[in-house]
Design a protein around this nucleic acid. Structure first.
Length: 152
DNA sequence: GCCAACGTTGGC
DNA sequence: GCCAACGTTGGC
């Protein structure tokens, strides 16, 4: 699950312990939040558009998707004037901090690792802020993230 | 800051 | 329903 760390980072989630994954304004992603996520699911926290692009840690989905309150808040960057409270188009999910990796597993590294080939995040033209990850890919990224790089 | 690769909008 | 114009994402 992608977030720009300038806006919301793994460190913010680590400090708050819990948060809500809001601001999703893409129907495909909304459907994933609604249909493909269950409480107890683990997710990689991905830092996009930043100095260090890649997976920064792990969080857990702790509840069902519910209406994203930011769509009704005129002060919010995510305000949607077309959103009707009786039929809210946008959803968010509650998440809980699980771990921050010892190091960021960079996009560069993900692309270069044969064990991580086929990840949706590296697919050409992918613009989804939430993408499915296989168990094998998830496990491998966690392993990399927990291992500090040795100086050469 | 650039720009490819999308998604969205709205006129017709 | 088509599609040009526009907006957004996100790596580089």
């Amino acid at each position: 699950m992608k977030s720009e760390p300038d806006v919301y980072s793994i460190d913010t989630l680590a400090k708050d312990r819990e948060g809500q994954w809001d601001g999703v304004r893409n129907y495909q992603v909304r459907n994933m939040l609604r249909d493909d996520m269950q409480p107890g699911d683990l997710a990689l926290f991905y830092h996009s558009n930043s100095k260090e692009i890649g997976c920064a840690g792990v969080m857990e989905v702790v509840g069902e998707a519910y209406p994203d309150p930011t769509q009704f808040n005129p002060q919010s960057d995510y305000f949607d004037p077309k959103a009707k409270p009786e039929n809210p188009p946008w959803l968010c999910v509650p998440v809980r901090f699980v771990e921050k990796f010892a190091r960021v597993v960079t996009l560069q590294e993900i692309k270069a690792d044969p064990k991580l080939s086929g990840m949706v995040i590296t697919a050409k033209g992918n613009r989804l802020s939430v993408t499915p990850v296989t168990k094998a890919h998830f496990t491998h990224i966690c392993k990399l993230g927990r291992t500090k790089l040795r100086r050469t």
